[in-house]
């Protein structure tokens, strides 16, 4: 057995540059407008290839293999579905209710097909990934989990996170070999309590502050309705920042827990060591800089985030990486992938 083999830790690295990506990004937008949207499929492939192709592990990069025409067809079908859904929902309550029910039922299907598509068009060292997840798991991870987290006001969010990461990793395949995520519910709660305290603290501090200021204001001369509005805006802003910070802390913590408890092929171990504060700082400052520059700094922001997250990710390889053989699978499910793209789901690996 290979018990005695030594581990070598290989860090991921993202080597793309902001200047280079800026060119790709602006030309993508330019050609998308000039071609009335058709180019958006080609744009997506170039963007994905840029990010995958610049992500290296142990001297080899990832590759993105989706073809633009595939993406275009998926986009058109997903777009038509979303438009039809929105029309039905606005038309009348009965049609809308049926459409909503239909979407809830179709959602897990679209999700798992979308993830499978993403996995199958991704390769590393000439070997494709695959995804074996099904409908039930997707329902638990993407419908039941978020619903449970919402109705319990986030108290059961760790459970939902665990379902989601277990669904993603335990069904991920590379060269026919499995990944296994062994993160326990306790570990997820371990990264949950601090962000939860921030959120509670925010309510404890801001709630009475608002009540005091607005409650006393009628008795304070010169404290007119504009002052109240200003106070409310300030409070909303502080609340939003606190909420974002706690959310980002949680996301980073959950990623660390899930990745670090994941093994591939029973021997190589994934690892993630994001610093929560640094991660939150990068995300928030990225947003601010992007807004202030009217979007022009977006390429810089995207590259900056990719650099940090990949630099904080590693694979502990036991002995040799080994030889894996690609299993050829069809690349269906692009509609699901594009549907998720429109709806803002990020499922890149």
């Amino acid at each position: 057995m290979d018990v005695g083999q030594k581990r070598t830790v290989a860090r991921f690295s993202f080597v793309g540059s902001a200047g280079e990506y800026f060119g790709i990004w602006i030309v993508n937008i330019l050609l998308t407008i000039l071609t009335l949207g058709i180019y958006s499929a080609w744009a997506k492939v170039r963007r994905m290839r840029y990010f995958y192709g610049n992500t290296f592990l142990d001297r080899h990069s990832f590759e993105y293999h989706a073809r633009p025409l595939q993406i275009l067809v998926g986009r058109i079908v997903a777009f038509v579905l979303i438009v039809c859904y929105n029309i039905l929902v606005n038309l009348n309550p009965i049609a809308g209710g049926i459409a909503f029910l239909g979407l809830v039922l179709a959602f897990p299907f679209l999700i798992y097909r979308g993830i499978r598509f993403h996995a199958r068009v991704t390769s590393y060292r000439n070997v494709r990934f695959d995804f074996a997840g099904g409908y039930g798991g997707a329902f638990l991870a993407y419908v039941a989990g978020p619903f449970l987290a919402m109705v319990t006001l986030g108290i059961l969010a760790p459970l939902a996170s665990r379902w989601r990461y277990r669904y993603l990793f335990n069904n991920l395949r590379y060269g026919g070999r499995r990944f296994a995520c062994g993160a326990t519910i306790g570990e997820f709660f371990g990264v949950w309590w601090f962000p939860a305290m921030i959120t509670i603290g925010m309510f404890v501090v801001l709630g009475p502050a608002v009540a005091l200021l607005t409650g006393f204001s009628p008795f304070v001369p010169g404290f007119g309705q504009y002052a109240i509005i200003a106070v409310i805006y300030a409070v909303v802003l502080i609340g939003l920042v606190a909420y974002s910070v706690s959310g980002l802390f949680y996301v980073a913590g959950v990623r660390n827990v899930a990745f670090s408890a994941t093994r591939f092929d029973g021997r190589h171990r994934l690892d993630s060591d994001l610093f929560r504060r640094r991660y939150a700082w990068i995300a928030i400052s990225n947003l601010l800089v992007t807004v202030v520059t009217f979007g022009l700094a977006r390429p810089w922001a995207a590259v900056r985030m990719a650099r940090y997250t990949w630099a904080s990710t590693a694979l502990a390889i036991r002995g040799e990486f080994g030889t894996y053989i690609s299993e050829l699978k069809d690349e269906s499910g692009v509609v699901g992938a594009e549907f998720m793209d429109f709806e803002g789901f990020d499922i890149g690996f």
């Binding site: 998308t32 990225n286 803002g344």
Partner: peptide, 26 residues
């Protein structure tokens, strides 16, 4: 009004491509 809102969201999703989740929301 309904069409204006729908049209704006569709254009943003289509053209913006990679603007990041938070910016898209904004």
């Amino acid at each position: 009004q309904v069409y204006r809102l729908a049209g704006m969201s569709a254009l943003i999703m289509l053209i913006a491509g990679d603007v990041g989740e938070a910016v898209e929301e904004l």
